[in-house]
């Protein structure tokens, strides 16, 4: 049975949640990769699909089209700013300033795609940029505070983990913000309140992160933090959770295929 650990977010609860996990995460083999690919190939569609925790939590229902806003840009900029702090920049706020300037400079020299974050930032009025700056600095500060409560070494994830399922035109994405003690645990942070399907979302992230790792080893725990709600939810990197997560991802693909066929 797959289990879910739910705790209040306190200065020490995150470290406790990770310590309570298994000593090692399960390891997947080539047989698991082939089996997953076969399941997704069985629900083929005529376009590429990307599945993540959010699509699982929404049970495959279509999300509104993505658009950049301070709320959607803050994570990318904030995490990159923390990366700069790790490289010697004095504060997250300064890191955000440098990151935004860098993204805009790249857009102005034609080194970004249309629709990318850099292009969007390059078109913004200073007053709009200031709100993006404030939102990203808030995000970076919150992530740094969460990291400080881990009581062990951690680093900011420079990017989410992606796994292309072999010959299935499917990409799985694992959202991640903090990597704890060389992949022993992964922490991802979200706004708002965890929904009743938050556990399913975390298991989907666990599957994508495990398949994306070169050695196929699952983190000991995949931890979701909702600072707005003061809650921590975690799943173990066990084979039961990996199986449950894979099932949810395939189910989501089935629902999406049904919707696309109906719309076609």
């Amino acid at each position: 049975m797959s289990t879910l650990a739910v705790r209040r977010l306190t200065p020490t609860s995150l470290a406790d949640v990770i310590d309570d996990g298994p000593d090692v995460g399960s390891t997947i083999t080539d047989a698991h990769r082939h089996a997953l690919a076969a399941r997704f190939r069985a629900v083929a569609i005529d376009r590429h699909r990307r599945l993540d925790a959010w699509s699982v939590e929404r049970a495959g229902r279509e999300s509104p089209p993505f658009r950049w806003s301070p709320a959607t840009a803050r994570r990318l900029i904030g995490n990159a700013a923390l990366g700069r702090v790790a490289d010697g920049v004095r504060t997250p706020r300064l890191g955000v300033e440098l990151e935004i300037a860098d993204l805009r400079a790249r857009a102005e020299t034609g080194r970004t795609r249309p629709g990318s974050l850099g292009s969007w930032l390059a078109d913004r009025h200073p007053a709009e940029l200031a709100v993006v700056h404030a939102a990203a600095a808030d995000w970076a500060t919150t992530i740094a505070e969460i990291g400080a409560g881990l009581g062990t070494s951690w680093r900011v994830a420079r990017a989410d983990a992606y796994y292309d399922v072999e010959r299935a035109r499917t990409t799985l994405r694992a959202r991640r913000d903090l990597i704890v003690a060389t992949d022993a645990a992964v922490v991802r942070v979200r706004g708002g309140h965890p929904s009743s399907s938050a556990g399913a979302g975390l298991r989907a992230d666990l599957v994508a992160a495990t398949f994306a790792s070169a050695d196929g080893r699952a983190p000991r725990r995949y931890v979701g933090v909702w600072p707005d709600a003061g809650l921590v939810v975690a799943v173990d990197g066990s084979m039961e959770n990996l199986r449950a997560g894979a099932r949810d991802l395939v189910r989501t693909a089935v629902v999406q295929r049904r919707q696309w066929l109906r719309a076609a």
């Binding site: 706004g191 309140h193 709600a229 003061g230």
Partner: peptide
């Protein structure tokens, strides 16, 4: 300093 800090309990 954080701004517009939200709570949903």
């Amino acid at each position: 300093v954080r701004t517009a800090v939200r709570t949903r309990l």
